[in-house]
Nucleic acid binder design. Sequence first.
DNA 1: TTGTGTATGTTACATTGTAACGATAAACAA
DNA 2: TTGTTTATCGTTACAATGTAACATACACAA
Lengths: 158, 158
Amino acid sequence: MDPVGFETHDHAHCMASALAKAEEECAEKGLQLTPVRRRVLEILLEQHRALGAYDVLEHLRAEKLGSQPPVAYRALDFLVSHGFAHRIERLNAFIACSHPGERHAPCFLICRECSAVVEAPGRQAAQALREAAAQLGFGVERVAIEAEGLCPACGPAA
Amino acid sequence: MDPVGFETHDHAHCMASALAKAEEECAEKGLQLTPVRRRVLEILLEQHRALGAYDVLEHLRAEKLGSQPPVAYRALDFLVSHGFAHRIERLNAFIACSHPGERHAPCFLICRECSAVVEAPGRQAAQALREAAAQLGFGVERVAIEAEGLCPACGPAA
DNA sequence: TTGTGTATGTTACATTGTAACGATAAACAA
DNA sequence: TTGTTTATCGTTACAATGTAACATACACAA
C-alpha cells in the first residue's frame, strides 16, 4: 500500500484514478454515484485536504448543486459509509480516501501547523486496539485512530 | 493497570480516590484545582460516563457555579490538559480519567447501544501509531484512539 | 396506473464551541 | 500600603456544526 505521504505527487492522476475507482465500485455494487455525490467526492479530491461539511456546501452552492446543510451531509455520509471518504473526528471534517477499494483501517496524521492530513497505514494500530478491546469483551465495529503533531515540512527538521 | 472494565465496581471509592489523586497532583505541580474545576471533575466522576460540555454546564447552573458555556469549557480544558479527564472526539464529550497520574495513552471503547464509554489500555495501539507516523516523518504529539462497537452487556452474547 | 423505494429540496431548529472584554482575586515587589 | 502582575472567572454575543421532519421528484416494478 502506497502510504501517500507528505511528498508532492501527480495530483491530477490521483484524482482521476480515485474517481474512476469510485465509479467502478458503485457500478459493481449497485450504488448510485449521483451528480451531487460525485461532485462532493471530486471536491474532496481536488482540495486534497480535510474539508468541513460547510466548506463542501459552499462549493455546492456556488455550483447550484444544493444550498442547505442536509445536502452536503447526505452526500458526505454516503461517501463515508461506502469508504470513498473518511471523517476526521478531531476536526469535524472530511477527506477523500487515499486507498479506495482496499480494505483498510484508516489512521490519520494531522499537522497542527499546516493542517495537512495524511492517511497512514493503520492496520497494526487497529489490530492492537481490537485486541485490547477483546480483553474487555468489547466487540469493535469501527475505529477512529488519529494523531496530532508535526508533519515533516513543519517539524523540527524544517 | 486495572482496566476498569464494564463490570460493576465500588463507585464511591473510585470517585474519592480519583479526586484525592487530582488534589495531590495539583498540589505537587502547583496547579489550581479551583471550586469550579474541582466540581466539574466530581460531576464527571459521579456520572461515570461521557458528558457533553452542556450537560456539565447544566449541573453548574443548578449549583450556581457558572451559567455560561465558557465556564464549563475552561474547566474541562483544564482537566483535559492536565490528564484528569479526556475528550471523546467521536461524541464531543468528556469523561473522567480512569487512571489519573499514570502516564498513559488513552484509548476508548464506546458502546453504540448503551453509550457506555470505557478507557482501555492503549499503549500498544499508540505505539503502532507512532511507528506508522515515524515512517512518514511525522512527529506524533497527541493521539486519539477510539473504537465504536458493542460492550459485553449489549453484545451478541447478551 | 399505482405503488414502492431512493434520492433530493427545504425549513427550522438543536447542539457544540469561541472570541472578546471586563471584573475579580491572590501573590509579590517597591 | 500601593501598585503591578498573573490567573481565573463572568458575561455577551456569535460562529460553527449537525439533524428532525416533511415535501417533492424520479425510476422501476406490480
